[in-house]
Design a protein around this nucleic acid. Structure first.
Lengths: 227, 227
DNA sequence: CTAACTTTTTGATTTAAATCAATTTAAAAC
DNA sequence: GTTTTAAATTGATTTAAATCAAAAAGTTAG
Protein backbone atom coordinates (compact mmCIF):
# COMPACT_ATOMS: atom_id res chain seq x y z
CA UNK A 1 0.00 0.00 0.00
CA UNK A 2 2.58 2.56 1.03
CA UNK A 3 4.84 1.34 -1.68
CA UNK A 4 2.11 1.63 -4.25
CA UNK A 5 1.44 5.17 -3.13
CA UNK A 6 5.07 6.05 -3.55
CA UNK A 7 4.97 4.71 -7.07
CA UNK A 8 1.78 6.50 -7.97
CA UNK A 9 2.96 9.80 -6.65
CA UNK A 10 5.57 9.78 -9.36
CA UNK A 11 2.91 9.64 -12.06
CA UNK A 12 2.38 13.19 -13.24
CA UNK A 13 -1.37 12.90 -13.21
CA UNK A 14 -1.46 12.10 -9.52
CA UNK A 15 1.33 14.38 -8.40
CA UNK A 16 -1.00 17.06 -7.06
CA UNK A 17 -2.99 14.69 -4.87
CA UNK A 18 -2.80 14.65 -1.10
CA UNK A 19 -1.79 11.57 0.82
CA UNK A 20 -5.38 10.80 1.71
CA UNK A 21 -6.48 11.11 -1.87
CA UNK A 22 -3.72 8.85 -3.00
CA UNK A 23 -4.85 6.27 -0.49
CA UNK A 24 -8.31 6.47 -1.93
CA UNK A 25 -6.95 5.83 -5.38
CA UNK A 26 -4.81 2.95 -4.27
CA UNK A 27 -7.84 1.34 -2.67
CA UNK A 28 -9.82 1.59 -5.85
CA UNK A 29 -7.44 0.03 -8.23
CA UNK A 30 -4.65 -2.45 -8.29
CA UNK A 31 -1.08 -2.91 -9.35
CA UNK A 32 -0.45 -5.36 -12.15
CA UNK A 33 2.86 -6.76 -13.23
CA UNK A 34 3.02 -7.31 -16.95
CA UNK A 35 5.72 -9.44 -18.50
CA UNK A 36 7.45 -8.22 -21.63
CA UNK A 37 5.35 -8.82 -24.76
CA UNK A 38 2.24 -9.64 -22.74
CA UNK A 39 -1.01 -8.09 -23.82
CA UNK A 40 -2.78 -5.83 -21.32
CA UNK A 41 -5.99 -5.45 -23.25
CA UNK A 42 -7.26 -6.21 -26.69
CA UNK A 43 -9.07 -4.12 -29.24
CA UNK A 44 -12.80 -4.64 -28.88
CA UNK A 45 -12.67 -5.64 -25.22
CA UNK A 46 -14.92 -3.80 -22.85
CA UNK A 47 -13.17 -0.74 -21.45
CA UNK A 48 -13.41 -1.29 -17.73
CA UNK A 49 -10.78 1.11 -16.53
CA UNK A 50 -7.74 3.25 -17.11
CA UNK A 51 -4.08 2.44 -16.70
CA UNK A 52 -1.05 4.29 -15.38
CA UNK A 53 2.42 3.10 -16.30
CA UNK A 54 4.34 2.74 -13.06
CA UNK A 55 7.38 0.98 -14.45
CA UNK A 56 8.44 0.04 -17.95
CA UNK A 57 6.83 0.94 -21.25
CA UNK A 58 3.57 0.05 -22.91
CA UNK A 59 2.86 0.05 -26.62
CA UNK A 60 -0.63 0.87 -27.85
CA UNK A 61 -1.37 -0.22 -31.38
CA UNK A 62 -4.03 -1.13 -33.86
CA UNK A 63 -3.85 -4.30 -35.89
CA UNK A 64 -4.24 -4.19 -39.63
CA UNK A 65 -5.98 -7.04 -41.41
CA UNK A 66 -2.63 -8.11 -42.79
CA UNK A 67 -1.38 -8.53 -39.24
CA UNK A 68 0.76 -5.39 -39.27
CA UNK A 69 0.79 -3.24 -36.19
CA UNK A 70 0.12 0.46 -36.38
CA UNK A 71 1.74 1.77 -33.25
CA UNK A 72 -0.26 4.70 -31.97
CA UNK A 73 1.94 5.52 -29.05
CA UNK A 74 4.42 4.12 -26.60
CA UNK A 75 3.66 5.20 -23.05
CA UNK A 76 6.41 5.61 -20.52
CA UNK A 77 6.51 5.81 -16.76
CA UNK A 78 4.04 8.20 -15.22
CA UNK A 79 1.81 8.31 -18.25
CA UNK A 80 -1.84 7.35 -18.32
CA UNK A 81 -3.45 5.44 -21.12
CA UNK A 82 -6.90 4.25 -22.17
CA UNK A 83 -8.71 7.25 -20.67
CA UNK A 84 -10.08 7.99 -24.10
CA UNK A 85 -11.68 4.56 -24.19
CA UNK A 86 -13.33 5.16 -20.87
CA UNK A 87 -14.73 8.50 -21.95
CA UNK A 88 -15.61 7.93 -25.52
CA UNK A 89 -16.51 4.34 -25.89
CA UNK A 90 -17.53 1.09 -24.47
CA UNK A 91 -14.62 -0.88 -25.81
CA UNK A 92 -10.89 -0.37 -26.14
CA UNK A 93 -10.12 0.79 -29.66
CA UNK A 94 -6.63 -0.68 -29.73
CA UNK A 95 -4.26 -3.22 -28.25
CA UNK A 96 -1.94 -2.51 -25.33
CA UNK A 97 1.19 -4.57 -24.86
CA UNK A 98 4.19 -4.28 -22.57
CA UNK A 99 7.35 -3.52 -24.51
CA UNK A 100 9.45 -4.51 -21.52
CA UNK A 101 8.72 -6.00 -18.12
CA UNK A 102 6.38 -3.41 -16.68
CA UNK A 103 4.12 -2.54 -13.81
CA UNK A 104 0.86 -0.75 -14.38
CA UNK A 105 -1.77 0.56 -12.03
CA UNK A 106 -5.30 -0.26 -13.04
CA UNK A 107 -8.09 2.06 -11.91
CA UNK A 108 -11.71 1.06 -12.25
CA UNK A 109 -13.76 3.19 -14.58
CA UNK A 110 -16.52 4.33 -12.21
CA UNK A 111 -14.07 5.17 -9.53
CA UNK A 112 -11.95 7.11 -11.95
CA UNK A 113 -14.88 9.17 -13.22
CA UNK A 114 -15.96 9.86 -9.67
CA UNK A 115 -12.50 11.08 -8.73
CA UNK A 116 -12.30 13.37 -11.70
CA UNK A 117 -15.60 14.95 -10.90
CA UNK A 118 -14.56 15.65 -7.40
CA UNK A 119 -11.05 16.81 -8.05
CA UNK A 120 -10.84 19.56 -10.66
CA UNK A 121 -7.07 19.63 -10.62
CA UNK A 122 -7.09 16.00 -11.71
CA UNK A 123 -9.34 16.90 -14.60
CA UNK A 124 -7.07 19.73 -15.62
CA UNK A 125 -4.00 17.51 -15.48
CA UNK A 126 -5.78 14.98 -17.55
CA UNK A 127 -6.94 17.52 -20.08
CA UNK A 128 -3.36 18.66 -20.33
CA UNK A 129 -2.01 15.20 -20.93
CA UNK A 130 -4.69 14.45 -23.49
CA UNK A 131 -3.85 17.68 -25.23
CA UNK A 132 -0.24 16.61 -25.33
CA UNK A 133 -1.19 13.29 -26.83
CA UNK A 134 -3.37 15.05 -29.36
CA UNK A 135 -0.41 17.14 -30.40
CA UNK A 136 1.74 14.08 -30.74
CA UNK A 137 -0.83 12.42 -32.91
CA UNK A 138 -1.02 15.53 -35.01
CA UNK A 139 2.72 15.54 -35.38
CA UNK A 140 2.72 11.88 -36.26
CA UNK A 141 0.13 12.60 -38.90
CA UNK A 142 2.46 15.20 -40.26
CA UNK A 143 5.32 12.76 -40.29
CA UNK A 144 3.39 10.09 -42.05
CA UNK A 145 1.90 12.33 -44.67
CA UNK A 146 5.31 13.21 -46.02
CA UNK A 147 5.66 11.19 -49.18
CA UNK A 148 9.28 10.29 -48.92
CA UNK A 149 10.55 7.93 -46.28
CA UNK A 150 13.72 9.98 -45.88
CA UNK A 151 11.56 12.97 -44.99
CA UNK A 152 9.52 10.98 -42.50
CA UNK A 153 12.63 9.58 -40.89
CA UNK A 154 14.18 13.04 -40.73
CA UNK A 155 11.10 14.51 -39.13
CA UNK A 156 10.94 11.67 -36.69
CA UNK A 157 14.56 12.13 -35.68
CA UNK A 158 14.07 15.87 -35.29
CA UNK A 159 11.12 15.15 -33.05
CA UNK A 160 13.19 12.74 -30.98
CA UNK A 161 15.86 15.38 -30.54
CA UNK A 162 13.28 17.48 -28.73
CA UNK A 163 12.06 14.68 -26.54
CA UNK A 164 14.99 12.44 -25.81
CA UNK A 165 18.44 13.32 -26.98
CA UNK A 166 21.79 13.59 -25.29
CA UNK A 167 24.52 15.94 -26.35
CA UNK A 168 27.91 14.27 -26.66
CA UNK A 169 31.15 15.42 -28.18
CA UNK A 170 30.37 13.45 -31.33
CA UNK A 171 26.90 14.96 -31.82
CA UNK A 172 23.32 14.63 -30.70
CA UNK A 173 22.68 11.11 -29.53
CA UNK A 174 19.30 9.39 -29.81
CA UNK A 175 18.45 5.98 -28.44
CA UNK A 176 15.65 4.51 -30.50
CA UNK A 177 12.73 3.53 -28.28
CA UNK A 178 11.86 0.56 -30.49
CA UNK A 179 13.54 -1.83 -32.85
CA UNK A 180 13.89 -1.00 -36.50
CA UNK A 181 11.06 -3.18 -37.69
CA UNK A 182 8.74 -1.35 -35.33
CA UNK A 183 10.14 2.01 -36.31
CA UNK A 184 9.59 1.15 -39.94
CA UNK A 185 5.97 0.40 -39.18
CA UNK A 186 5.68 3.60 -37.17
CA UNK A 187 6.97 5.52 -40.17
CA UNK A 188 4.55 3.79 -42.46
CA UNK A 189 7.13 1.75 -44.32
CA UNK A 190 8.88 -1.61 -44.15
CA UNK A 191 12.15 -2.59 -42.56
CA UNK A 192 13.94 -3.02 -45.89
CA UNK A 193 13.20 0.53 -46.93
CA UNK A 194 14.11 1.93 -43.53
CA UNK A 195 17.38 0.07 -43.66
CA UNK A 196 18.22 1.56 -47.05
CA UNK A 197 17.17 5.03 -45.97
CA UNK A 198 19.37 4.90 -42.89
CA UNK A 199 22.21 3.70 -45.03
CA UNK A 200 21.79 6.60 -47.38
CA UNK A 201 21.78 9.12 -44.54
CA UNK A 202 24.93 7.52 -43.19
CA UNK A 203 26.61 7.73 -46.59
CA UNK A 204 25.76 11.42 -46.73
CA UNK A 205 27.36 11.90 -43.34
CA UNK A 206 24.11 13.17 -41.85
CA UNK A 207 23.93 10.50 -39.18
CA UNK A 208 26.05 7.78 -37.65
CA UNK A 209 24.98 4.61 -35.95
CA UNK A 210 26.48 2.93 -32.93
CA UNK A 211 25.04 0.16 -30.78
CA UNK A 212 21.40 1.09 -30.77
CA UNK A 213 22.05 4.77 -30.88
CA UNK A 214 21.81 7.23 -33.71
CA UNK A 215 24.14 10.18 -33.70
CA UNK A 216 22.97 13.25 -35.54
CA UNK A 217 25.83 14.95 -37.32
CA UNK A 218 23.97 17.46 -39.47
CA UNK A 219 20.75 18.75 -37.98
CA UNK A 220 20.30 21.22 -40.83
CA UNK A 221 20.38 18.48 -43.40
CA UNK A 222 17.61 16.69 -41.54
CA UNK A 223 15.55 19.86 -41.59
CA UNK A 224 16.01 20.13 -45.32
CA UNK A 225 14.84 16.57 -45.80
CA UNK A 226 11.78 17.03 -43.61
CA UNK A 227 10.43 19.89 -45.65
CA UNK B 1 -26.64 38.58 -25.11
CA UNK B 2 -29.74 36.43 -24.95
CA UNK B 3 -29.26 35.47 -28.54
CA UNK B 4 -25.65 34.47 -27.89
CA UNK B 5 -26.77 32.34 -24.98
CA UNK B 6 -29.27 30.58 -27.18
CA UNK B 7 -26.53 29.82 -29.66
CA UNK B 8 -24.10 28.62 -27.04
CA UNK B 9 -26.61 26.37 -25.38
CA UNK B 10 -26.64 24.31 -28.56
CA UNK B 11 -22.93 23.62 -28.26
CA UNK B 12 -22.60 20.21 -26.66
CA UNK B 13 -19.91 21.32 -24.28
CA UNK B 14 -22.11 23.96 -22.71
CA UNK B 15 -25.37 22.07 -22.79
CA UNK B 16 -25.28 21.15 -19.13
CA UNK B 17 -24.77 24.70 -17.89
CA UNK B 18 -27.40 26.71 -16.09
CA UNK B 19 -28.67 30.00 -17.39
CA UNK B 20 -26.53 31.94 -14.93
CA UNK B 21 -23.43 30.01 -15.89
CA UNK B 22 -24.09 30.61 -19.52
CA UNK B 23 -24.35 34.32 -18.82
CA UNK B 24 -20.99 34.17 -17.15
CA UNK B 25 -19.49 32.55 -20.18
CA UNK B 26 -21.07 34.99 -22.58
CA UNK B 27 -19.62 37.84 -20.57
CA UNK B 28 -16.14 36.39 -20.75
CA UNK B 29 -15.87 35.86 -24.43
CA UNK B 30 -17.22 37.21 -27.62
CA UNK B 31 -18.92 36.19 -30.80
CA UNK B 32 -16.92 36.55 -33.98
CA UNK B 33 -18.22 36.37 -37.51
CA UNK B 34 -15.71 34.79 -39.84
CA UNK B 35 -16.06 35.08 -43.58
CA UNK B 36 -15.48 32.01 -45.72
CA UNK B 37 -11.76 31.33 -46.26
CA UNK B 38 -10.73 33.77 -43.56
CA UNK B 39 -8.08 32.69 -41.13
CA UNK B 40 -9.03 32.58 -37.47
CA UNK B 41 -5.56 31.98 -36.12
CA UNK B 42 -2.19 31.06 -37.47
CA UNK B 43 0.30 28.40 -36.47
CA UNK B 44 2.81 29.90 -34.05
CA UNK B 45 0.52 32.64 -32.77
CA UNK B 46 0.10 32.90 -29.05
CA UNK B 47 -2.81 30.77 -27.88
CA UNK B 48 -5.00 33.25 -26.09
CA UNK B 49 -8.22 31.33 -25.94
CA UNK B 50 -10.49 28.57 -27.15
CA UNK B 51 -13.17 28.60 -29.80
CA UNK B 52 -16.61 27.11 -30.16
CA UNK B 53 -18.18 26.80 -33.59
CA UNK B 54 -21.60 28.38 -33.39
CA UNK B 55 -22.41 28.37 -37.08
CA UNK B 56 -20.61 27.03 -40.11
CA UNK B 57 -17.47 24.90 -40.27
CA UNK B 58 -13.85 25.48 -39.43
CA UNK B 59 -10.89 23.67 -40.88
CA UNK B 60 -7.80 23.15 -38.75
CA UNK B 61 -4.66 22.31 -40.67
CA UNK B 62 -0.90 22.36 -40.65
CA UNK B 63 1.08 23.81 -43.49
CA UNK B 64 3.85 21.82 -45.12
CA UNK B 65 6.94 23.59 -46.35
CA UNK B 66 5.76 22.96 -49.90
CA UNK B 67 2.60 24.90 -49.11
CA UNK B 68 0.38 21.85 -48.92
CA UNK B 69 -2.23 21.71 -46.20
CA UNK B 70 -2.52 18.75 -43.89
CA UNK B 71 -6.07 18.97 -42.67
CA UNK B 72 -6.21 17.74 -39.11
CA UNK B 73 -9.91 18.13 -38.62
CA UNK B 74 -12.96 20.00 -39.76
CA UNK B 75 -15.04 21.19 -36.83
CA UNK B 76 -18.79 21.60 -37.16
CA UNK B 77 -21.41 23.42 -35.15
CA UNK B 78 -21.26 22.87 -31.42
CA UNK B 79 -17.68 21.65 -31.44
CA UNK B 80 -14.83 23.23 -29.54
CA UNK B 81 -11.37 23.66 -30.94
CA UNK B 82 -7.95 24.86 -29.81
CA UNK B 83 -8.36 23.64 -26.23
CA UNK B 84 -5.30 21.52 -26.72
CA UNK B 85 -3.28 24.63 -27.50
CA UNK B 86 -4.47 26.29 -24.35
CA UNK B 87 -3.56 23.30 -22.20
CA UNK B 88 -0.42 22.07 -23.78
CA UNK B 89 1.32 25.01 -25.26
CA UNK B 90 1.85 28.65 -25.56
CA UNK B 91 1.16 28.89 -29.25
CA UNK B 92 -1.37 27.43 -31.65
CA UNK B 93 0.15 24.41 -33.36
CA UNK B 94 -1.91 24.80 -36.52
CA UNK B 95 -3.97 27.10 -38.67
CA UNK B 96 -7.73 27.55 -38.34
CA UNK B 97 -9.76 28.76 -41.28
CA UNK B 98 -13.48 29.05 -41.94
CA UNK B 99 -14.60 26.67 -44.66
CA UNK B 100 -17.84 28.59 -45.04
CA UNK B 101 -19.25 31.78 -43.57
CA UNK B 102 -19.17 30.99 -39.89
CA UNK B 103 -19.71 32.32 -36.42
CA UNK B 104 -17.44 31.30 -33.59
CA UNK B 105 -17.46 32.10 -29.91
CA UNK B 106 -14.10 33.03 -28.51
CA UNK B 107 -13.43 32.41 -24.83
CA UNK B 108 -10.41 33.86 -23.11
CA UNK B 109 -7.92 31.36 -21.84
CA UNK B 110 -7.84 32.32 -18.15
CA UNK B 111 -11.54 32.52 -17.93
CA UNK B 112 -11.87 29.17 -19.60
CA UNK B 113 -9.47 27.50 -17.21
CA UNK B 114 -11.23 29.07 -14.26
CA UNK B 115 -14.59 27.81 -15.45
CA UNK B 116 -13.31 24.29 -15.91
CA UNK B 117 -11.90 24.20 -12.45
CA UNK B 118 -15.18 25.26 -10.97
CA UNK B 119 -17.44 23.13 -13.05
CA UNK B 120 -16.46 19.47 -13.11
CA UNK B 121 -19.15 18.54 -15.58
CA UNK B 122 -17.57 20.91 -18.05
CA UNK B 123 -14.26 19.15 -17.59
CA UNK B 124 -15.86 15.79 -18.13
CA UNK B 125 -17.61 16.95 -21.27
CA UNK B 126 -14.38 18.32 -22.51
CA UNK B 127 -12.47 15.14 -21.71
CA UNK B 128 -15.11 13.27 -23.63
CA UNK B 129 -14.81 15.44 -26.68
CA UNK B 130 -11.04 15.29 -26.60
CA UNK B 131 -11.24 11.55 -26.36
CA UNK B 132 -13.47 11.53 -29.40
CA UNK B 133 -10.99 13.65 -31.31
CA UNK B 134 -8.20 11.36 -30.22
CA UNK B 135 -10.08 8.43 -31.64
CA UNK B 136 -10.64 10.21 -34.88
CA UNK B 137 -6.97 10.98 -35.15
CA UNK B 138 -6.18 7.39 -34.46
CA UNK B 139 -8.55 6.30 -37.15
CA UNK B 140 -7.09 8.81 -39.55
CA UNK B 141 -3.67 7.40 -38.78
CA UNK B 142 -5.03 4.00 -39.66
CA UNK B 143 -6.43 5.31 -42.90
CA UNK B 144 -3.25 7.01 -43.92
CA UNK B 145 -0.98 4.14 -43.10
CA UNK B 146 -2.63 1.92 -45.65
CA UNK B 147 -0.28 1.85 -48.60
CA UNK B 148 -2.79 1.86 -51.40
CA UNK B 149 -4.90 4.87 -52.10
CA UNK B 150 -7.87 2.68 -52.95
CA UNK B 151 -7.66 1.22 -49.47
CA UNK B 152 -7.43 4.60 -47.84
CA UNK B 153 -10.37 5.88 -49.81
CA UNK B 154 -12.38 2.78 -48.99
CA UNK B 155 -11.61 3.12 -45.29
CA UNK B 156 -12.48 6.78 -45.38
CA UNK B 157 -15.82 6.09 -47.05
CA UNK B 158 -16.62 3.34 -44.57
CA UNK B 159 -15.90 5.79 -41.79
CA UNK B 160 -18.17 8.37 -43.35
CA UNK B 161 -20.94 5.82 -43.55
CA UNK B 162 -20.86 5.63 -39.76
CA UNK B 163 -20.83 9.36 -39.26
CA UNK B 164 -22.84 10.91 -42.02
CA UNK B 165 -24.69 8.79 -44.52
CA UNK B 166 -28.22 8.66 -45.73
CA UNK B 167 -29.98 5.57 -46.91
CA UNK B 168 -31.74 6.00 -50.24
CA UNK B 169 -33.27 3.52 -52.61
CA UNK B 170 -30.15 3.67 -54.75
CA UNK B 171 -27.73 2.97 -51.91
CA UNK B 172 -25.90 4.66 -49.06
CA UNK B 173 -25.41 8.29 -49.86
CA UNK B 174 -22.46 10.34 -48.61
CA UNK B 175 -21.99 14.04 -49.11
CA UNK B 176 -18.31 14.83 -49.06
CA UNK B 177 -17.51 17.46 -46.43
CA UNK B 178 -14.72 18.95 -48.54
CA UNK B 179 -13.72 19.28 -52.16
CA UNK B 180 -11.73 16.59 -53.86
CA UNK B 181 -8.42 18.39 -53.72
CA UNK B 182 -8.81 18.66 -49.97
CA UNK B 183 -9.94 15.07 -49.69
CA UNK B 184 -6.90 13.99 -51.67
CA UNK B 185 -4.69 15.83 -49.23
CA UNK B 186 -6.59 14.34 -46.31
CA UNK B 187 -5.93 10.88 -47.75
CA UNK B 188 -2.27 11.64 -48.20
CA UNK B 189 -2.36 11.74 -51.98
CA UNK B 190 -2.90 14.21 -54.82
CA UNK B 191 -6.05 15.11 -56.72
CA UNK B 192 -4.96 13.30 -59.89
CA UNK B 193 -4.59 10.02 -58.09
CA UNK B 194 -7.84 10.44 -56.19
CA UNK B 195 -9.60 11.14 -59.45
CA UNK B 196 -8.26 7.97 -60.98
CA UNK B 197 -9.08 5.93 -57.92
CA UNK B 198 -12.65 7.16 -57.84
CA UNK B 199 -12.96 6.36 -61.52
CA UNK B 200 -11.73 2.85 -60.96
CA UNK B 201 -14.23 2.28 -58.15
CA UNK B 202 -16.99 3.57 -60.39
CA UNK B 203 -15.93 1.25 -63.20
CA UNK B 204 -16.10 -1.65 -60.79
CA UNK B 205 -19.62 -0.65 -59.82
CA UNK B 206 -18.63 -0.18 -56.20
CA UNK B 207 -19.67 3.45 -56.06
CA UNK B 208 -21.54 6.02 -58.10
CA UNK B 209 -21.19 9.76 -58.13
CA UNK B 210 -23.89 12.37 -58.45
CA UNK B 211 -23.64 16.11 -57.79
CA UNK B 212 -21.32 16.16 -54.81
CA UNK B 213 -22.58 12.94 -53.42
CA UNK B 214 -21.09 9.49 -53.46
CA UNK B 215 -23.42 6.55 -53.49
CA UNK B 216 -22.08 3.33 -52.10
CA UNK B 217 -23.28 0.35 -54.06
CA UNK B 218 -21.12 -2.41 -52.63
CA UNK B 219 -20.16 -1.96 -49.01
CA UNK B 220 -18.52 -5.37 -48.89
CA UNK B 221 -16.19 -4.49 -51.74
CA UNK B 222 -15.08 -1.42 -49.81
CA UNK B 223 -14.36 -3.58 -46.79
CA UNK B 224 -12.23 -5.86 -48.94
CA UNK B 225 -10.26 -2.91 -50.24
CA UNK B 226 -9.69 -1.47 -46.80
CA UNK B 227 -8.04 -4.57 -45.43
C1' DC C 1 30.17 -23.02 -27.70
C1' DT C 2 26.96 -24.35 -30.97
C1' DA C 3 22.33 -24.38 -32.68
C1' DA C 4 18.05 -22.09 -33.57
C1' DC C 5 15.76 -18.14 -34.17
C1' DT C 6 15.07 -13.22 -35.05
C1' DT C 7 16.32 -8.94 -36.87
C1' DT C 8 18.73 -6.34 -40.17
C1' DT C 9 20.84 -5.69 -44.44
C1' DT C 10 21.56 -6.13 -49.47
C1' DG C 11 20.09 -7.25 -54.28
C1' DA C 12 16.80 -7.60 -58.27
C1' DT C 13 12.23 -6.74 -59.82
C1' DT C 14 7.65 -5.01 -59.86
C1' DT C 15 4.19 -1.73 -58.92
C1' DA C 16 1.55 2.02 -57.34
C1' DA C 17 1.47 6.57 -57.29
C1' DA C 18 3.76 11.18 -57.95
C1' DT C 19 4.94 14.37 -61.38
C1' DC C 20 4.55 16.91 -65.61
C1' DA C 21 1.55 18.59 -69.13
C1' DA C 22 -2.74 19.55 -71.09
C1' DT C 23 -7.73 19.46 -71.52
C1' DT C 24 -12.37 19.53 -69.79
C1' DT C 25 -15.67 20.89 -66.59
C1' DA C 26 -17.50 23.72 -63.11
C1' DA C 27 -17.89 27.85 -60.34
C1' DA C 28 -17.39 32.75 -59.58
C1' DA C 29 -17.07 37.41 -61.15
C1' DC C 30 -18.28 40.84 -64.16
C1' DG D 1 -24.40 35.56 -70.94
C1' DT D 2 -19.63 35.98 -71.34
C1' DT D 3 -15.15 36.15 -69.28
C1' DT D 4 -12.08 34.75 -65.72
C1' DT D 5 -10.57 31.71 -62.38
C1' DA D 6 -10.46 27.42 -60.02
C1' DA D 7 -11.31 22.39 -59.72
C1' DA D 8 -11.38 17.97 -61.74
C1' DT D 9 -10.07 14.76 -65.15
C1' DT D 10 -7.11 12.31 -68.50
C1' DG D 11 -2.64 10.92 -70.61
C1' DA D 12 2.44 9.91 -70.63
C1' DT D 13 6.50 9.43 -67.93
C1' DT D 14 9.34 9.05 -63.94
C1' DT D 15 10.34 7.66 -59.42
C1' DA D 16 10.25 6.01 -54.82
C1' DA D 17 9.19 2.33 -52.39
C1' DA D 18 6.99 -2.35 -51.88
C1' DT D 19 7.75 -7.05 -52.77
C1' DC D 20 10.32 -11.23 -53.36
C1' DA D 21 14.48 -13.66 -52.25
C1' DA D 22 18.53 -14.52 -49.79
C1' DA D 23 22.52 -13.54 -47.02
C1' DA D 24 24.58 -11.45 -42.91
C1' DA D 25 24.52 -9.98 -38.28
C1' DG D 26 22.80 -10.20 -33.82
C1' DT D 27 20.12 -12.65 -29.92
C1' DT D 28 18.57 -16.24 -27.21
C1' DA D 29 18.43 -20.92 -25.74
C1' DG D 30 20.19 -25.39 -24.95
Amino acid sequence: MEKTKELLKKASIFSSLSDAELSEIVQNGRLKKIAKDSIIFRQGEEATGVYVVVKGRVKVYKLGVDGRQHILHIFGEGETFAEAAVFAGKTYPAFAEAVENSTVFYLYKDRFLYLIERKPSLALKMLGSQAKLLREFASKLEVISLREVSGRLAKYLLGQIEIASRKTKSGLEIRLPMNKTQLASYLGTVSETLSRTLKSLKEQGIIEEENHKIIIKKVEALKDLSG
